[in-house]
Nucleic acid binder design. Structure first.
Length: 294
DNA sequence: AACCAGGGGCCGG
DNA sequence: CCGGCCCATGGT
């Protein structure tokens, strides 16, 4: 299946801007993705995008939605570009799109993401899939709730979930008992949905916002991790420390229903260029200097 | 409010 | 090689 004439679509940027974890780079512009209960290869060159194995019907039913192809990114970019920082960030990551992922996989994945690095997060999710997910070819799909709910903390630990095992277990308990239903959450307004997600141990503001933005289509939320916090302080708070709440308020005021898109452009921009006030490198040097003084 | 929760990668010595 | 530090954070 080929698609062409699609602007605002750069597969490398879409996958590597931090919203999803189950992908593998084969070469530049060529990736394997495991999502929506399928394995998909995608290869992009200047004029076209090739998805395989994928019928036109599957594309229409699954991937058109997954890649958010019903959304007009030109309009979003034009609006956000009124801000000069965003204009640069958008120029840098012009092929980014927000994916529409599976809520259960997204929730477990972002619980795992806390205080963790991307390669490690990918490894852990892979381990969980290999243990409880369905095998397709040489790959394992992310497990369903039905399959994963039998996992005890000990077997989760074998997957290197570390201190997050008890959080995953709490999540599985609440979902399988029906106390919390992702399906019901879909119908709630964003504040209510967020409060519901945060009943789960290990799900705080940041993780809940990621689930809302990446799988429940709430594009107005602004997940604020250390990177976003630093880049926001650098560009909009005069390089001064700002509480998360203040950053949320600022983003809501400035970008409204497009705040989630702004977050993704800023995240990719900040991570890739490492241009922010408290970047790891600078902090390291600062620490080093202080140490030398002492 | 500081500290801790595994594990692993990275860096300096 | 080894200790120390860091990491898409949240709970106590």
């Amino acid at each position: 299946m080929f698609i062409s004439g699609q602007n605002s679509f750069e597969i490398g940027q879409i996958l590597e801007c931090g919203q999803c974890f189950r992908f593998e780079k084969i070469e530049e512009g060529h990736y394997k993705i495991i999502a929506r209960n399928r394995v998909l290869y995608i290869k992009q060159d200047e004029e076209k995008i090739c998805l395989y194995p994928c019928s036109a019907e599957e594309f229409g039913n699954i991937w058109h939605d997954y890649f958010d192809l019903g959304t007009d990114y030109d309009e979003i970019k034009a609006t956000l570009s009124e801000d000069s920082v965003l204009r640069d960030a958008i120029a840098f990551g012009s092929g980014i799109r927000l994916l529409n992922q599976d809520p259960f996989e997204c929730l477990i994945s972002f619980i795992i993401s806390q205080n963790n690095r991307i390669p490690m997060i990918q490894k852990v999710i892979g381990n969980i899939s290999a243990k409880w997910g369905e095998k397709t070819g040489e790959d394992f799909l992310f497990p369903t709730l039905e399959a994963l709910k039998v996992a005890d903390c000990e077997s989760l630990n074998e997957c290197k979930t570390g201190f997050r095992s008890k959080y995953i277990r709490d999540c599985l308990d609440r979902l399988s008992s029906g106390e919390i239903s992702l399906n019901n959450i879909k119908a709630m307004d964003t504040a209510e949905a967020k409060a519901e997600l945060m009943k789960i141990k290990g799900v705080g503001t940041k993780v809940a916002d990621c689930v809302l933005l990446f799988s429940l289509r709430r594009r107005e939320v602004f997940p604020t991790d250390v990177w976003i916090k630093r880049v926001m302080e650098y560009f909009y708070f005069d390089g001064k420390e700002a509480p998360i709440k203040e950053i949320h308020g600022f983003a809501a005021e400035k970008w409204g229903r497009y705040a989630g898109f702004a977050q993704q452009y800023l995240f990719y921009y900040a991570r890739t260029l490492q241009i922010n006030a408290g970047s790891s490198k600078e902090n390291k040097n600062k620490r080093k200097n202080e140490k030398n003084k002492a």
